[in-house]
Simulated scan of single mutants.
Amino acid sequence: MDSRSIWVRVPGTSANCGPGFDSIGLACTVYNDLQLQLTEAPGCRITINGAGAGNIPCDDRNIVWQSVQYLLKKAGLADTYKGAIIHMENNVPLSRGLGSSATAIVAGLKGANALINNRFTRRELLQFATDIEGHPDNVAPAIYGGFTISTVTRGDVECFTLIPKMRLKLVVAVPDFPLSTKKAREVLPKEVPMKDAINNIGRAGMLVAALCKGNEKFLRNVFEDALHQPYRAKLIPGMYDVFSAAKKAGALGASLSGAGPCLIAYCLQRRHVEDAVGQAMQEAFARHGVKANILSLELDTRGAHILNDK
């Protein structure tokens, strides 16, 4: 039995960032920690504390274990390490649009890679994670940190990472109900009007440019989306009212976080503003009968990393 045990920390993520559907994401300062030990004996032992502890499977369906096996297979070591001991300390809310499945995938890949002496690069891990998840918008920021813009060309993933030239606060309203990504995908149309596509291309380009330049003036209208939010609004009571309340309280803008139901407001780092925005979002949700917790987060700039190696 290999006695090495490793701890990995992976940030939660918010995908789409308004107009950047399935392409723009960010990492935020809420984390899942994973302790991983590979064993030569078959079988996997899994323990979980925190978010989703009663809902996450502790058998072969566990996505961390599946990701560990995926990487070992790629390395030709699946017959060497047939089992694992996994412990998860979860702070990222489950099925809320903060990338909980992406953190699990990235944690499994990053931890297993560290235990086999980092055979694969971060870019290769991104490719593996995208192959498992199906798209890169959540796994890319979980790996790299910061804001990420990702494209897939004939199956090959490319990712550009940027740290904006401004300090942003991310105020997240977390409703007390889950929403599966599958259900949120099912409401989307197969085709969209040309004007809606143009709306998103322009705003996504301006979002990235404004972040690169640190120009807050151009962030005030960029988060409006026409490709997915209008169709998902019926799944989240009061969504547009919460957006309006956030802007009225001083946020630059607000959007659906991933597939939802979390809503995220983007603020400049001024304490009184983020407190007011959080309260306004909470109250707007309450008017629609939804109880929501508020998380006041920052941009994570490090991405997935090893906490210890012993």
Rank of each mutant, 00 (worst) to 15 (best):
D275V: 15
F223Q: 03
S67A: 12
E40G: 14
L299Q: 04
S244V: 13
Q282T: 06
I86D: 04
T47K: 12
S67D: 05
H305N: 13
N113T: 03
L219I: 03
K190R: 12
P93S: 03
G260A: 03
D241H: 08
M88F: 11
N138T: 02
V92E: 01
Q229T: 06
N49E: 15
E191F: 11
A209D: 07
L235D: 06
P189H: 00
L188F: 00
A27R: 10
G83S: 09
N308R: 15
P261R: 07
K74Y: 12
E283M: 11
N62M: 04
G289T: 04
P230Q: 00
G289C: 04
N199K: 11
G303L: 07
L207Q: 02
N199T: 11
L179H: 07
C267Y: 07
D131I: 07
G289R: 02
A75F: 03
S101G: 05
N62Q: 02
I46E: 10
L125W: 01
R96E: 08
Q66D: 12
P175N: 10
I236A: 07
Y70Q: 14
G50Y: 02
N49P: 00
S257C: 03
Y144I: 06
K234T: 13
G214P: 08
N138C: 08
E133G: 06
I63R: 13
L71F: 05
L268P: 06
S14N: 09
L207R: 02
A15Q: 07
V290P: 00
K217Y: 11
P57I: 06
N91A: 15
I24K: 10
M206G: 02
A78T: 08
K165Q: 14
R9V: 07
V290M: 02
L235R: 00
F160S: 15
D79T: 15
G146H: 08
T301S: 13
G52T: 05
G145S: 06
Q229I: 03
G76V: 04
E191G: 04
D131K: 09
Y240Q: 13
H87W: 11
L235M: 00
A246T: 05
T121S: 13
D79K: 15
K247N: 13
A102D: 02
V174Y: 08
N16S: 03
R203I: 04
I236Y: 02
P164L: 02
V152D: 08
V139D: 10
G25Y: 07
A173S: 14
G97C: 10
A251T: 00
V10Q: 05
L170Q: 11
L295Q: 10
L168E: 07
M166L: 15
A251M: 01
A53N: 02
G278E: 01
G202H: 12
A107K: 06
N117R: 14
S257V: 03
K190N: 06
L168F: 10
L71I: 06
G258K: 05
M281L: 04
K234G: 10
K183R: 14
I85R: 15
K110T: 15
P141V: 08
K165W: 05
I198A: 10
K74W: 12
N62P: 00
L227A: 01
Q35N: 15
Q229C: 04
R167D: 15
N118H: 14
G278I: 01
L295C: 09
K247Y: 12
T161P: 11
L179G: 06
S150R: 08
S67F: 03
R61N: 09
Q269P: 10
P42V: 01
V208T: 09
F218T: 10
V273Q: 10
F147C: 01
G205Q: 04
E298L: 15
F147M: 05
